[in-house]
Nucleic acid binder design. Structure first.
Length: 459
RNA sequence: UCCCCGAUAGCUCAAUCGGCAGAGCGGGUGGCUGUUAACCACUAGGCUGUAGGUUCAAGUCCUACUCGGGGAGCCA
């Protein structure tokens, strides 16, 4: 067993304690009487300064103190005369566990995020990525805690599905057929000879599978990976990402907005409490407005306007848009950012969209032309959440499905939910990785995911 | 997929009108008050993304391609 104490705990130790620490050297400095190495073991944002008395350590024994090397140090906690840290470790023994050579790519200076993207195996050793992944962990737990405390059940929908969820993007097909010799029948692929005896896909949304659980357990949520084969090559898109999809029986659209707002505030508060060092780091190096962003979310009441009001606001704003906002068309990302950023300066719920631009499962409003959908737009990043009250009336759903060209046989089970014991219910979807971007200020989704899978690239 | 920008030392970048390929950091060597991305000196390190073209002369201009980034669309 390798005994060692994490830096996160060492920095809270009393002066005089003897500890063993293992970590990677971030920077090392040698002078005549003394040498310093700042080491980090990932347990926290802080480095631990280790001091080597050069009377005790020979030049040779310190020659391995290079940026990137993994070392094990036994020493005593002493108070530090330096300005940048209260305590430091006075070394009594040093072991170079993993030496480095001069080809080690990470240096004690800033690297571009693009450069670091080319080495996903080493970038977690940088302050930036270690911080991102620590916040990622805490945000995951914040989500589970929120829903557990709120009476939700965590469910696991299938990742492999038989159908393409309407309107949610391109699917990856899953097959066990030999692609070099695909079995054919009447000129088409014979899927009856595939693994599932039918075509299969990776899930693009768990919503449809979550609804039956909500209509039995009351409140449920999913939190898992989602796959999209869209050829989207942007800083907010990847092929594999994580989504949170709560689904609630006996919730109307207003209940849903209240839930989303409470949820967002909980997550922000949780991260601010658990990761103060990381938030300060991102504030300093990436997004000067980050703590202000947190404050706005925590202290403001999110704006709520209808789609029609939003279009009018945009049209009369005097701002010049590349695409003119017109009723009946979806908002472009510049519209979303303008509404949240310029008009309100805080997150804004937009509700009641034209039925023609939304999927068949959203509940038709009394006016017959709009549906009870809601999007949450945030400053800078645009759309964060998309949700709706689901159409629970069989006749309405049947009509909308037909208009949308949905194969009724495939969705028979979905219609049957409305046939037997139907109930009003609602849900929403939230891109976890995008939320992490929002909370860290990282501007490319590929920099908040350990191993991003994107169009044309497998990092 | 479309539009825009970029590619020069290991990394981050500079190179004026087309005229000798540069700096900082990192590496090595030496020096040095307990330093904080330490500092000082010296040193090694280059087929300027690839393939063509224009020119007396191309890192610089033109064409194509490759790779990277940003934006649009689609979406989370």
């Amino acid at each position: 067993m390798i005994l060692r104490e994490p830096v996160e705990s060492v920095v809270r130790r009393e002066v005089g304690c003897t500890v063993t620490v293992c970590g990677w050297i971030r920077t090392a400095r040698l002078s005549r009487t003394v040498a310093f190495a700042a080491i980090n073991d990932g347990s926290c944002a802080q480095n631990l300064q280790v001091v080597f008395d050069r009377e005790r350590f020979t030049d040779d024994s310190l020659s391995g103190l290079l940026t990137g090397a993994c070392i094990k140090v036994l020493g005593e906690i002493v108070s530090s005369p330096g300005q940048e840290q209260a305590k430091e470790l006075h070394a009594t023994s040093l072991e170079i566990i993993g030496p480095v050579d001069d080809a080690y790519p990470l240096q004690k200076k800033r690297h571009s995020l693009e450069f670091l993207r080319s080495m996903t195996h080493l970038r977690p050793r940088t302050n930036t990525f270690a911080s991102v992944f620590r916040v990622r962990h805490h945000l995951c737990l914040a989500i589970h805690r929120f829903f557990d405390d709120d009476g939700f059940y965590y469910i696991q929908p299938p990742l492999i599905t038989s159908s393409d969820c309407e309107g949610a993007g391109e699917t990856f097909q899953v097959t066990a057929l030999p692609l070099t010799q695909v079995p054919l029948k009447d000129g088409a692929v014979d899927f009856s000879r595939d693994f599932f005896r039918m075509p299969a896909f990776l899930s693009v949304s768990a919503q449809l599978e979550a609804e039956p659980l909500a209509l039995a357990l009351g409140k449920v949520y999913t939190f898992g990976p989602t796959f999209r084969a869209d050829p989207s090559d942007t800083r907010t898109h990847v092929a594999e990402f994580w989504m949170i999809e709560p689904e609630m029986a006996f919730f109307d659209l207003e209940d849903t907005m209240n839930l989303i707002e409470r949820f967002m505030k909980h997550c922000v508060r949780y991260v601010a409490e658990r990761c103060p060092d990381e938030v300060a780091f991102f504030q300093k190096h990436y997004e000067p407005g980050l703590t202000e962003r947190y404050r706005t979310i925590l202290e403001s009441e999110f704006e709520r306007i209808t789609y029609t009001e939003a279009v009018e606001t945009l049209a009369s704003s005097g701002a010049r848009f590349e695409t003119v906002p017109r009723w009946g068309e979806d908002f472009s990302s510049e519209h979303q950012r303008y509404l949240a950023g310029e008009v309100f300066g805080k997150p804004v719920f937009v509700t009641d969209f034209p039925a023609s631009i939304k999927p068949f499962y959203m509940r038709v409003n009394a006016d017959g032309t709009t549906v009870a959908g809601v999007d949450l737009f945030a400053p800078v990043v645009g759309e964060l959440v998309g949700g709706s009250q689901r159409e629970e009336r069989l006749a309405h759903l049947g009509r909308r499905a037909q208009e949308a060209g949905i194969d009724m046989e495939t969705y028979r089970w979905y219609l049957e939910l409305r046939r037997w014991g139907s109930a009003p219910h609602s849900g929403f979807g939230l891109g976890f990785d995008r939320m992490l971007m929002y909370l860290t200020g990282m501007e490319n989704i590929r920099d908040v995911i350990p191993y991003p899978r994107a169009f044309g690239k497998m990092y």
